Amino acid sequence: MRFTCINVGYGDSFLLECEDSVILVDGGSALDSEFTDSSCRIRSADYLIKAGIKHIDTLIITHIHEDHAAGLAAVCNRIPVKKVLIPYAPKLFKNRIIPPAHENAPENVTLFAQALYRFTDIMQLCESRGIPVEEISAGMNIPAGNLQIRVLGPAEKDKNAFIEGLRNFFSAPPEEQQSKWFPYLDRISNAASLLLKISNKDIHLLLCADNCPANWDRSIFPLLKNVTVLKLPHHGQKDAVDEKIMAMMNPDYILTTASSDRRHNSADPAVYKMLTELYAPNKQPVFLFSDGINYEPYFSREKPFQAIRISFGENGSSPEFVDV
């Protein structure tokens, strides 16, 4: 199995390749500003094309936020996709028209409106091309060739709250959509994002999107003990970790999708101080950061890179920093 974290700046995009399956989880941002000022960041669609990816067997969209979902519109237009998995019923988005946010709306609300528009566009594109879209929920175990996708979250209450918010948004008058439902949906989308454990034999990836430990159902805790790669939720902000829950795991790698400017307090130093104190010196995980070269004392590289690729084989694993 090969796991690749694409450097999309502040955002998530992960490629998993096995003998008979190619999975893409999220696609990063579609904002020009995310890529114009960096020599190493790359749009997910561009990376996949340069890396020679001819098709995607399973595309997973963890939630509706610009830095996770918006870049996937370009992916779907450039690379054949066989199946899409989302945490909502696809019929919710059928024949929907998403307005832009008001000009004076806060930036986060504007970005959420853009993400909802692009997500809806992807759903309509899938319908027009006959690409199956399936709703997935906590408790499901989904085979994907030699990979197994186990859905650990979101918790039912958080999922239901977001779906009910979507229904209210679609039925509300325009001014109420702008003043109430755009901000509300943006605020609760993280808690409603997919929490995934993807496994191949004894390799287990925990991909948390922006679903933070405070929202996790206690019933999943026994499934955390054998995690090999932990993708920290919420870009390594303070709410990304819970000491008791992190102590259940002893991963080989801890990956953070922070931006090099540590925007929105991503890659918060307190997070890594706590993690290094949590694990014994001889069991310290390898810390990886998707963007930038200097997160001392935890991570440092001489040259920028467009992706981190970890290949797992009989002789173990080691990260490779890729510039395609």
Results as ranks from 00 to 15, higher is better:
residue 3 F to C: 03
residue 5 C to Y: 10
residue 6 I to A: 01
residue 6 I to C: 00
residue 6 I to L: 00
residue 9 G to S: 09
residue 12 D to M: 08
residue 12 D to K: 11
residue 15 L to A: 00
residue 20 D to E: 07
residue 21 S to K: 05
residue 22 V to E: 01
residue 24 L to K: 04
residue 24 L to N: 02
residue 29 S to V: 02
residue 29 S to P: 03
residue 31 L to E: 15
residue 32 D to G: 01
residue 33 S to Q: 12
residue 34 E to Y: 10
residue 34 E to W: 07
residue 39 S to E: 13
residue 39 S to A: 14
residue 44 S to E: 01
residue 50 K to F: 01
residue 51 A to K: 15
residue 51 A to E: 13
residue 64 I to M: 12
residue 65 H to R: 13
residue 65 H to N: 12
residue 70 A to W: 02
residue 74 A to V: 07
residue 80 P to R: 07
residue 82 K to T: 07
residue 89 A to T: 11
residue 90 P to D: 02
residue 93 F to P: 12
residue 95 N to A: 13
residue 97 I to Y: 09
residue 106 P to V: 01
residue 108 N to F: 14
residue 112 F to I: 05
residue 113 A to L: 09
residue 117 Y to K: 11
residue 119 F to M: 10
residue 120 T to G: 10
residue 121 D to Y: 13
residue 123 M to Q: 14
residue 123 M to D: 04
residue 125 L to S: 11
residue 129 R to W: 11
residue 132 P to G: 09
residue 136 I to T: 06
residue 136 I to H: 04
residue 139 G to Q: 05
residue 147 L to Y: 12
residue 150 R to A: 13
residue 151 V to C: 08
residue 156 E to N: 13
residue 156 E to F: 09
residue 159 K to D: 05
residue 161 A to V: 04
residue 167 R to T: 14
residue 172 A to T: 04
residue 172 A to W: 06
residue 176 E to T: 11
residue 179 S to V: 09
residue 181 W to T: 07
residue 182 F to V: 08
residue 185 L to E: 11
residue 186 D to M: 12
residue 188 I to Q: 12
residue 196 L to K: 08
residue 196 L to T: 07
residue 198 I to D: 00
residue 202 D to Y: 08
residue 209 A to K: 08
residue 212 C to A: 14
residue 216 W to R: 03
residue 216 W to P: 01
residue 216 W to L: 03
residue 218 R to K: 15
residue 223 L to P: 02
residue 223 L to N: 12
residue 224 L to T: 08
residue 224 L to I: 10
residue 226 N to L: 03
residue 226 N to V: 00
residue 229 V to I: 15
residue 239 D to S: 15
residue 240 A to H: 04
residue 240 A to T: 04
residue 241 V to Y: 06
residue 242 D to E: 10
residue 242 D to H: 06
residue 244 K to L: 11
residue 250 N to T: 00
residue 254 I to G: 00
residue 257 T to F: 12
residue 260 S to G: 09
residue 262 R to D: 04
residue 265 N to C: 09
residue 266 S to K: 04
residue 269 P to H: 02
residue 272 Y to N: 09
residue 274 M to I: 05
residue 279 Y to K: 05
residue 281 P to A: 00
residue 288 L to V: 08
residue 292 G to M: 06
residue 292 G to F: 02
residue 293 I to A: 09
residue 296 E to H: 10
residue 297 P to F: 10
residue 297 P to A: 09
residue 297 P to G: 09
residue 302 E to Q: 15
residue 309 R to Q: 15
residue 314 E to M: 12
residue 316 G to Q: 00
residue 318 S to Q: 12
residue 319 P to W: 01
residue 319 P to R: 00
residue 320 E to R: 04
residue 323 D to T: 14
